[in-house]
Amino acid sequence: MAVHLQKEIDLLKKSILHLCAVVEDVVNKAVTAVQSRDEDLARKVMSEDKQVDDEEVRVEEECLKALALHQPVAIDLRYIIACLKINNDLERIGDLAVNIAERAVYLSREPDPDIQFDFPLMAEKVQVMLRKSLDAFINMDAAIAHQVLESDDEIDAMNRDAILLVKEHIKSAPEHLDALINLWSVSRHLERIADHASNIAEDVIYMIEGKIVRHRAELI
């Protein structure tokens, strides 16, 4: 039985790693599309969402199959449960990348509002968080997962700063209202991606340590 289950887990690992790579790629493209106001790249991100959705369904089916047929326990159970949950987060991150891409399409047609907000820095930090959370998952490294959780507050603070800046700019340059609201949306979507990266990190910690650290700041 262990050999059969190991085969299923190897297959699952391959599928979810591919999904990780695809999702990381669409986030990077979406961020680049905003920064370079590249409508074509943004549309590419939007068209790739179906691939993310299809792979998410496949990973879920593989998880359910392994649970139903092999009734895994211990690390095998924790790995499959972590895959199920991370799979869900990956799909949501894919959707957020599409949301960012949609803002990029809009922003590419608008004049630059020249806001002081350091969007590239926030995007870079969120991408690093996402990469680290996936590295933690792939390498089963709880230490990296803990680092990811520590970064989340910083992203939340950047998002709050972005809201304040956008508010000020709306008052001083109301002609850029639409662009500013779109930029604020991008910030919010990035912050949500960071939240999902944190979820992934929490699931990695559960998988490795068997501890549920959600809602329990003292354990982080």
């Binding site: 262990a2 289950l5 326990v73 211990a74 690390i75 095998d76 159970l77 924790r78 068997g210």
Partner: peptide
């Protein structure tokens, strides 16, 4: 429930996971 989700000993883990 703990033994079958997060056993303390590697020997237990190896046995219950069929290794």
């Amino acid at each position: 429930s703990k033994l079958f989700t997060k056993p303390e000993k590697k020997q237990t883990e190896d046995y219950i996971t069929g290794r």
